[in-house]
Design a protein around this nucleic acid. Structure first.
Lengths: 330, 330
DNA sequence: AGACCCGAAGAAATCGGTTTCGTCAAGGTG
DNA sequence: CACCTTGACGAAACCGATTTCTTCGGGTCT
């Protein structure tokens, strides 16, 4: 590992001068040439660890998401990465698995690694985010709220739930169920709230309690929930899934039962990026996953740049594709 | 940021002793208690950057993959992460986008960040991997070969291609096309080679040249390739896709054309984790993505531990699900 | 010409751990 | 009792960059 001292020796200058050359501080043209020549010859590249120790910061940002195998979060991650990459930062991706302990663990790492900032989809209400913010490290919450007063980027969840449910009602379905996430997580609650509200308003009565199923956010959760719905004495004729993977599970169960959409109405809050069904069979309320990521990244960059205006919350709207075939047309 | 000096002062010992306590070196029980008490009270956590500068290494491993939005690589990443996490290491995920420049960039970062090792699906034949290995940093190749003499974990690609193609022939399809990846990448070539070999052997004649389509590895590539195949004067009645995402694109085009599998035979090397079709409609040759990851991670850990036996290549077999409905049964 | 100022550049301190080296006391041996 | 070994532990060097402090040379102003 070639150090700044070796470059300095070869160029016949002091290490300080070499450092100045690399950081754009004023150095005479003559010495700049000497240093450049020496460092090229030795293939010098600065040791980031040493620089970080001295500067107390690095060009690395941590991104904490619950599940890297969920396409929603990978799209979001791409957005974050693209924006930060362009600004010269690197991104470290961390899976929290919706586990508060893992979240704490990674926040500790971000702290002790002197990372420039953190973007996270919070699990715990008030994790150990304070540890970061107390040291002046910016933190941006994404997709989910925290109890803290920090920047955040959200989706308008009730509106998304309303849009998904309305589309099914418009298409002529009458008995609309909902597969929502774990009770503890608030974002899916917002979507389920939208569902309940629309059903109540437009049918004149609140939905059956059994029509609201709680599941984990994964494919198997969707499967179990859909099976439970189909086993009801009065099964629904359509379902709203509050996330993408649960919808996949639900559709799998429906296909296996011979109820291929649109014979059974399906609307999903989120995208099915690898869906192999004809696109018009299912109503998707597209979530701006990538945009969520770029927005959060840019907010973080502003904070890293020293911006200290009061905390902001940006709410992005989901965009509906109204494509369910109306019942009458079947 | 509370440092080791503050802890030492509070405990009434030297910084060296505090360090020894945290690293399990022999220290009298009495002082251990003092140090523990002091560090708990101050909520001390060691500064990893300083430690890394001194030790010239860190508990961080870089994982370079082409595309984080491809479920194959996310599953692989989970495997890597699970294995390394258990050993106390953290994983940094990097997207190369199959771009040699990005690969080089991230390898440089791994180098200047003093990371403990690198696992990568190589893009370039000989990237700048040498820079790492020359410094004694272990590197493990995954899914794709390099020209270098380093540990690697591969899939038996020709066998996977053979299995996929054979399953379609067994099911009664006769005109079998193949959608392969970009010409430059060797793994998909292995799979396409398997396809060509089986078709030639079992039909007595090599496949039409036009039945081999090259595409990028993504959904849109699969779409374009499938469209080209359907537009042929003599279109095929089945297709082998050498990766998962291209298969999704192909199936989408088929559905749109009214040719839902198994009316048109589809076999894919790889998994369709979020498929919404009935599972038996498509032949999947399952790739052990996660296992690939854990295997690579464990090999890397051995190398980090100082193992210096000659470079190994582990070849994992794909596992076929024979599930295409025979033509006769339709 | 002398006082003053400014920019360039070297010496040295600094970031926060780890580790070598040296000291000192306790315990064991001849 | 003198000598040697052993183990705990503090002082200080060290990792490699950045930055403050200081010095020095060459203008400019009066």
């Amino acid at each position: 590992m070639v150090t700044i001292y070796e470059v300095a020796a070869k160029a016949g200058v002091s290490p300080a001068t070499v450092s100045r050359v690399f950081n754009g501080m004023p150095v005479s043209a003559e010495k700049v040439d000497l240093v450049r020549a020496a460092s090229d010859e030795l293939r010098y590249s600065p040791n980031k660890t040493a620089r970080r120790l001295r500067n107390q910061t690095s060009e690395i940002v941590a991104l904490l998401i619950p599940d890297i195998e969920n396409p929603f979060f990978t799209a979001l991650a791409r957005g974050v990465e693209d924006a930060l990459q362009a600004a010269g930062y690197s991104v470290v991706l961390c899976n929290t698995d919706d586990d508060p302990d893992k979240e704490t663990h990674y926040l500790d790492i971000a702290n002790s690694e002197n990372m420039a900032g953190v973007i996270l989809a919070p699990v715990a209400e008030d994790g150990d985010i304070r540890r970061l913010t107390d040291r002046g490290r910016p933190v941006v919450a994404i997709d989910r709220q925290t109890g803290l007063n920090i920047d955040s980027v959200m989706v308008d969840n009730p509106a998304a739930g309303i849009a998904a449910t309305s589309a099914l009602l418009d298409a002529g379905y009458t008995k609309i169920a909902c597969i929502a996430g774990p009770v503890v997580l608030e974002d899916t609650e917002g979507r389920a709230l939208g569902w309940r509200k629309v059903v109540t308003q437009r049918t004149g009565a609140p939905p059956l309690e059994a029509y609201l199923q709680h599941a984990n956010y994964r494919v198997d959760g969707g499967r179990l929930a859909m099976q439970a719905l189909l086993a009801l004495p009065e099964p629904p004729d359509a379902v709203v899934s509050t996330n993408n993977l649960m919808a996949v599970g639900a559709i799998q169960v429906l296909s296996e039962a011979g109820l291929v959409p649109p014979d059974f109405g399906v609307a999903v809050v989120g995208d099915l990026p690898f869906a192999t069904l004809p696109p018009r069979a299912i109503t998707q309320v597209h979530l701006p996953a990538r945009h969520l990521g770029t927005t959060a990244a840019n907010m973080l960059l502003e904070r890293i740049g020293g911006d200290d205006q009061p905390a902001r919350t940006v709410v992005l709207r989901a965009q509906i594709t109204k494509s369910s075939t109306p019942v009458s047309a079947r």
